[in-house]
């Protein structure tokens, strides 16, 4: 394969967008699964142990580098494509009657992506920076020391405006995914007559379900809600 085509040709750039997009979707699933510990009994210890695993496991840490690379590629290629696409019609139409085939969010991927990027910066500053570079309180389970990321979450989500910002982030993510999942499948050529409706449905279910679970997290923290299910732990 002529790899440079992945970065220079229009379809190549789209393939990079689709592959990194799918990688980021997988990350969302893992992130959602780990964090879902906070909904259940013994939340503090289970969540802190899970977070500790994610922070200390070598394989996870290596994947984290890939994750950052994935984010950067997705963001840079996304903006490059957006600029190129916007520049391909210098004289605009006086009247546009189209847009019947697509929803507003399908045509606003760059804006939604920018909102998610802004959210991501806030989110990293809230949780990733203190857990990597210090600043978290510590807690002992048995004789082993853990970062108390759970306490950090509780403190941060005590502020109503932070909860609102996170909810807006989840909405942006949901809309971005509503277009992104089916679009990635189409770009990678996975769609055909039989698959297309199924892929669209899977995309819609995923795009609503995952951001909804994420959105429930700051809400659960703010309102102090927890499910009283003793036996469920999503521990590693």
């Amino acid at each position: 394969m002529n790899w440079s085509l992945l970065f220079s040709s229009s379809i190549g750039k789209k393939i990079v967008m689709a592959l990194t997009g799918i990688f980021l979707v997988v990350f969302l699933v893992v992130h959602c699964y780990v964090n879902a510990n906070i909904f259940f009994a013994n939340a503090e210890e289970n969540f802190n142990r899970a977070a500790h695993f994610m922070g200390s496991n070598l394989l996870v840490r290596i994947t984290e580098i890939g994750l950052f690379a994935g984010f950067i590629l997705h963001i840079v290629q996304g903006y490059k494509l957006e600029l190129q696409n916007r520049g391909s019609r210098k004289t605009r139409y006086a009247v546009t009657a189209g847009n019947k085939t697509s929803k507003w969010y399908s045509r606003s991927m760059a804006i939604l992506g920018t909102l998610i990027l802004l959210f991501l910066i806030i989110h990293l500053a809230h949780f990733w920076v203190p857990s990597r570079f210090g600043g978290l309180e510590e807690v002992y389970y048995g004789d082993k020391k853990f970062h108390n990321l759970y306490l950090e979450m509780k403190n941060i989500f005590a502020e109503p405006w932070v909860v609102i910002v996170y909810l807006l982030g989840c909405f942006s993510l949901s809309w971005h995914l509503l277009h992104g999942v089916q679009s990635a499948a189409q770009t990678l050529g996975w769609t055909n007559k039989n698959f297309f409706p199924m892929i669209k449905t899977i995309g819609i279910v995923f795009s609503i379900l995952v951001p909804l679970i994420f959105a429930l997290m700051p809400l659960a923290m703010y309102f102090g809600l927890q499910l009283d299910l003793e036996n469920i732990t999503l521990l590693f």
Partner: peptide
């Protein structure tokens, strides 16, 4: 595809207005 790119067409963002 190379010629298409050279001509200055945009890329596809799967909004399907074309169809």
């Amino acid at each position: 595809v190379a010629q298409m790119d050279k001509e200055g067409f945009g890329s596809c963002t799967n909004t399907y207005a074309c169809e």
